[in-house]
């Protein structure tokens, strides 16, 4: 049927959590080794009252959170999550949620850098008073928080993840995309989400050409 090929870079496939977080040496999905790595990280979060996943924009922090979630749900009696984004920080939500959390629970704050420093300090002391843990994501390490993982991507990892995305595409589309990648300067500061946003256009043009025959 015409028109049924999906663009491998559309939001459906690349939004945070759509692809399981991939560690350097193995694929988490379906791999017991990857699962044990996640379990280990979850234990670390339980043992360290305040932890943070550090990495630049679009490097997989939220994806790692999503992949970790089932392990965290099993490890904590209560789990609340807020996601702060620059355009809609909704800081009040953070304070309201922290009041609802039970002692011994885990408060996940995705995008901690959106909070002002005094708000971070307030949250830090509030968690100690109320006896709950915090797992945050941020662009830089946070004072008082143990860094659980740095998600910055190497050029090789970016190429590998992109190749996985286009594996089912025709060879000419693959070649165009790989050629585009080779022209880009890739490294730890690359925003993978934005890069894939650009590659969407190339893939879409090729899909349209295929569709029109």
């Amino acid at each position: 049927m015409n028109g049924l090929v999906s663009n491998p870079f559309c939001t459906r496939f690349v939004r945070p959590g759509a692809i399981p977080y991939q560690f350097d040496s193995f694929d988490v999905a379906g791999n017991p080794e990857g699962s044990s790595d996640l379990a280990q990280m979850s234990t670390q979060v339980s043992e360290t009252r305040h932890s943070v996943i550090v990495g630049p924009h679009g490097s997989g922090k939220s994806t790692l959170l999503q992949t970790l979630r089932p392990h965290l749900q099993a490890a904590f009696c209560d789990l609340l999550e807020v996601r702060l984004i620059a355009s809609q920080p909704q800081r009040r939500m953070v304070f309201e949620a922290s009041e609802r959390l039970h002692a011994g629970g885990l408060f996940v704050v995705d995008g901690m850098e959106q909070l002002a420093s005094w708000q971070r300090v307030w949250l830090f002391w509030h968690s100690i008073r109320r006896n709950y843990s915090i797992l945050a994501t941020a662009h830089r390490p946070l004072r008082g928080f143990a860094t659980l993982r740095n998600t910055a991507l190497s050029a090789e990892k970016i190429r590998q993840l992109t190749e996985q995305r286009i594996a089912a595409m025709p060879d000419d589309t693959k070649n165009l995309i790989l050629n585009e990648l080779s022209k880009r300067s890739l490294g730890p500061e690359t925003n993978l989400r934005e890069l894939w946003f650009d590659l969407y256009d190339i893939a879409e043009r090729m899909i349209a050409l295929e569709r029109s025959g």
Partner: peptide, 9 residues
């Protein structure tokens, strides 16, 4: 039905 593309779904 669902939408897919560059934006929200």
């Amino acid at each position: 039905w669902h939408t897919e593309g560059k934006g929200d779904e």
